[in-house]
Write a protein that binds this DNA or RNA. Sequence first.
DNA 1: ATAGTTCTGAACATGACTGTTCCGTCCGGT
DNA 2: ACCGGACGGAACAGTCATGTTCAGAACTAT
Lengths: 205, 205
Amino acid sequence: MKRPLLDVVAEVLVAQPGASLAEVAEAAGISRTTLHKHYATREELVRAVGVRVTDIWEQAVERVAKEPGTEAGLRQLLAAMIESGPQLTFLWRNPALDADEELTRRYIDVERRCLAVLDRARSRGLLAASATNWWLLQTMYSLVYTAAEAIEAGKLAPLDAPDLVLSTLLHGLGGPIAGAAGDGTPGEADAATATAATTSSPTAS
Amino acid sequence: MKRPLLDVVAEVLVAQPGASLAEVAEAAGISRTTLHKHYATREELVRAVGVRVTDIWEQAVERVAKEPGTEAGLRQLLAAMIESGPQLTFLWRNPALDADEELTRRYIDVERRCLAVLDRARSRGLLAASATNWWLLQTMYSLVYTAAEAIEAGKLAPLDAPDLVLSTLLHGLGGPIAGAAGDGTPGEADAATATAATTSSPTAS
DNA sequence: ATAGTTCTGAACATGACTGTTCCGTCCGGT
DNA sequence: ACCGGACGGAACAGTCATGTTCAGAACTAT
C-alpha cells in the first residue's frame, strides 16, 4: 500500500510530462506542500524521475547485456527496451535532462552496452556490416518506441511486440523476394509480422 | 520579403510547439496585438497551422500518389514524407487537433492514399503480404520521423535519407544472410545502408 | 502523556501567458 | 486633403503554475 513516492511521481510524469505539481501531488496522495518538501523545485523532481528512469533502463540492459549476439539475444534486448519504452521517451523528450552531466554520462554508457550486443550480432553476420551504428540505434529506438506506444494504445499485444520489432528490424517489411531467408518455401512467411490488430483504424498519434 | 503570415507562424510553431504568442509574433515581425487580430485565440492559430500542415502533407502525397508500386515509387513517397517530416510531427503531437473533425477526416484520407501506394507495392510482391497495413504505416512513419530528425540535426544528408529509409523499410538491417536479395555475391551490400554520419556521437534525442 | 517529526490546509507573492481594450500612427486610395 | 483599414504600443484583467511561509493536526517513539 505504501508505494515509494518516487514510483508514483515517475508514473505520473512519464504518462503526462506536462502535469502540474498539484496533479502529481494528488496522484501521489499527498499535499502539494509535502511534495515540495521532498523535491524543492520542479526541476529537482524531474531530475529525480530522470535518474530513476535511467536506473530502470540501465537494469533492463544490464539484464541482457551478457546475451550473445544471437537472434534470441537480440530479442531479449528488444523486449527489455519495449518494456521500458514509455520511460525512455521521458528521457528523450526532456531537453532539460541533457544538461545533467551524470545522467547523460550514464545514458551514453548504457547505450554503449546496447551497441556491444549489437556489435556481437553484427560480427555473427546477423546484422548488416554496412549498417552504421548510429542508424542502427536510431532505427531500433524508433521501432521500440512505436511498439511501446502501440501496446499502450492496446493495438499490439505485449507478447507479440518483441518478435514483430525483431523481424522488422532484421528483415524489414519487404516481400518474400528480398525479405525471406535464403531457403525456398516462400509460403511460410515470418510468422511474427502478422497478428497485430484486428481493425486498421488509422488515426493520428 | 513579404512572406505570408501563416508561413512564418507555421515555421515557428512547428519548430517550437510550445512557443508563446509573443515569440510567434516577434518571429513574424508583427506585434502581439496584430497577431491576435488575425487569430483571435491560440487554439485558432494552432488549428490554422494544422490545416496548413495538412495541406502540405496532402500535396506531397498527391504528387506521388499516382506512382506505381515500384521501388522507385516507394522511394518517391518516402522522399515526400521525409521532406515534410517536421511538419507531420506537429500533427502527431497535437492532441488538440484530433478534436477537429475536418482535419482528421482529411488526415485519414491522405493516409488512405499512402496505403494505396503501399498496397500496389504489396501486390507486386515488393512488400510482405503478411505485414499489417497498420504496422506498415507505423514503421514507415517512425523511420521517416527518425530520418527527418536526423537531417535536422545535420547527421544525415537529405539526399541519402530516402534511400536509407527505403532500404531499411524493405530489407531491414539484417545481415547478408537474410537481408540481401536472393542472388549470391554477398560482398556488394545494399549501397544505401552506409554513408550516414561520420561520428557516432550517441547523445539523447 | 509527551516530545519530535511529518504532513496538511490555507494563504501569499511572483511570474508567465493569454485575451482584450483603447488610442494613436501609418499608409494607400480617392 | 481626406478617409478607412491595418498596425503598433501600452495597459489591464484573468488565469494558472510555481515556490514559500506558517500555524495546526496527525502520527510515532519513548
